[in-house]
Amino acid sequence: MVTIFATLGWEPKSVIPSLKIRDNVEKLIVYHSPDKKGEDAWQKLWGYCSSIKLPLKSVKLENQFDLIKTAKEIRKDLRKYAGKDIVFNITGGTKVMSSAALLACILEAVPAVYCNEKTGKEETLPLLQIRYEDFLTKPQKNILTVIKQLGGECNAVDIAKKTGLRKATVSHHIKQLGDMGLVVVETSKKDSRKKSVKLLESVELLLE
């Protein structure tokens, strides 16, 4: 049994091919905008799904213009289905909705598909089925988590205290994380003699 996730635009036609080519669809979960056109599209899709008795769940995206918040919301839902057979159709909706859905799929290793406008057929996107956070080591993840817990910005001493690691070890990991583009090290606003480590907003997507 497969659950299909989809972003929905103003017309439901981009979602339908994903329903038609699969056997045993268990449920359809669609993300749409809360405006009238989004609601209308949802109503049409609801009519179609009712006719084939397919359970349909609607998620209104209140932050549909905020990529990171939308990706976080979608990722949270995808995690509830971890280990189950799921697929995400990213064709419909605004660019932000579609990009946020793809971002969540990359991070959670969920197969993503889109409906080709020309052929009307579903195509699978080239995505490796490995959770993206698995590219980080355990100490790297720990340090990122600690920075998040400390409000997204702190210094190496704070991290050392919280993790129990030596300051030199923490500094080594911070340097690595900086080279990876996940944290920014800058002069502290409170004390210009100290350096502060700042977590990028989107990096929270890599953490539990």
Partner: peptide, 28 residues
């Protein structure tokens, strides 16, 4: 956009998404 996003993650290239503001994406 989707092709670019996937390729940036695929190759580890710093990626941004600029709408009204610019988001740096969590590419390693």
């Amino acid at each position: 956009s989707a092709a670019a996003l996937l390729m940036c993650f695929n190759k580890g290239i710093p990626a941004y998404h600029s709408e009204e503001k610019t988001y740096k994406l969590p590419v390693i």
